[in-house]
Design a protein around this nucleic acid. Sequence first.
DNA 1: GCAATAAACGGGTATATGCATACACATGAC
DNA 2: GTCATGTGTATGCATATACCCGTTTATTGC
Lengths: 132, 132
Amino acid sequence: MTSPCYCTLLRTATRKVAAAYDAALAPVGINIAQYALLRMIQNRQQVSLTELGRLADLDRSTIGRNVKVLERDGLVKTARGEDQREAVVSLSPGGIEALAAATPLWEACQRQIEKRLGTDKIEALRAIAHAV
Amino acid sequence: MTSPCYCTLLRTATRKVAAAYDAALAPVGINIAQYALLRMIQNRQQVSLTELGRLADLDRSTIGRNVKVLERDGLVKTARGEDQREAVVSLSPGGIEALAAATPLWEACQRQIEKRLGTDKIEALRAIAHAV
DNA sequence: GCAATAAACGGGTATATGCATACACATGAC
DNA sequence: GTCATGTGTATGCATATACCCGTTTATTGC
């Protein structure tokens, strides 16, 4: 009768996987969303909120709020850009440190997921992410 | 150097897919999370919050809040169970109606995703969801 | 140079989600 | 029957997320 809802499958899987990453990163005091954001900021060195939103595929207002939490926690700093409208975000020393501390934990999580899913499903996951 | 974060792939894919379902269901005034919850309630006719939480793999407190929104919107009703601690949830007439109106829209979304991903990736999605 | 338009943020409102804690009710040992 | 323990909810606090609207700052057309 009713086929499984693909969206619900995804949502549930994501919650579980994210919980695993969150738990792994907890010692550093950040979660997986923050880790991803910190890494994007690191890659660009200097980014505006709008650009970060594009990179992360997130609404600008979401990025703004998430960055605010990172700033409050001393992991990033923001400044006005040349374009006075722009808020330019970059890692603070604390953020660089946190990222360095978090990366091995994140790596371990990656390995764990790879082990759990196996090469074929990992490949499929990449393909699915690319397709949607 | 840095491999793609599987968690971030999943999170991003889920956001996009959920947005598609949310948009499809918008005419009925519910989102995909609510649709999934309504369907679970319909299947069981009568469920406690704890059981719903188990079914949906969600924290009990999350279920409690989500059900509260459904109740406010007149889609479900809750009553005290035999066990006086229990809140028993069931669909209201409005909820039955909404579910009926939403289901064709949801079906269309399912078809759209199937078309977008193709049989192989759909199968893989099921396998991944099962594995995590 | 000025008016219209576009772009970047910020804040309000709303949902979904989890954890920790408090409170209410049940149940079993005695 | 009473007390300890377990189970079911509710609530406070925090994050992530989106949409809409208002304000500020560029940019562009004339």
